[in-house]
Amino acid sequence: MKKKSNEIGMNRTGNASSPVDSKKMLENVDPNVSTAPRIEKSRISAVRTAYSENAAPVGSVPPPASVKGAITTGAQMLTGKNPAVFINKLGERLAFERTGTRLYQAVISRYDVLKATPGFPKLADLKKIHGDELAHFQMLWDSLVELGADPTVVTPGADLAGVESTGLLQVITDPRTRGAECLHSLLVAELADHDGWEMLIDLARSLGHDTLAGRFEKALQQEEMHLSSVRNWMTTIINNEAAA
């Protein structure tokens, strides 16, 4: 591992690195002219609105694969006026936990390099969180099956969670990123994960799925530990680096 990311070096993106050329660029700028449009009245807004008005959603939630099967097992029954909402959110959590497992695997796979960052967590700590995420994924899979839903489906919420997570994986798998940078990616994931579980628990309770809500609460307790651990690791590293 070579340099840290926050060392002084030849970053060329700012104007100060090209004093002559940046002055020439300013010859094109009238500082008295404000060009930023009022977004709600802009032509950009008009295009976005026109397309949005005619756009179908990104997809839909399929009907339960085996409602009859779910009833006969007696485990759970889909309740509520619109059970698709619950299935959609369960699918979203499932997708997020699966990607979350891969995020931790990516960090673990680079551990020999990342551990050089002073304050970086122990391998056993990362493996513990990885194990929790994997268990959450398994539990959600089983819950969907009990409800008669198909756990292999990509629900709209799952799809968009995948879009949101793309950048997190890019950061963690980039060979150039260092310990604190990877932990920041994990922090973003854990923050979203934490709130995702809270909402899912509320939804499960409101629909009368108390058994499921009980399982989800155990997961949330673990997620709270993950969030606080990642936050602490990151803070320690940043403070260490600033003081070094």
Binding site: M25, L26, V29, N32, T35, A36, S42, R43, I44
Partner: peptide, 22 residues
Amino acid sequence: SEIVADGYQWRPGTELKVYPKA
């Protein structure tokens, strides 16, 4: 191309940056 750049003028950082009036 007209819609996206309606009234746009490049300035360092972003067009959102407000400078004190000369």
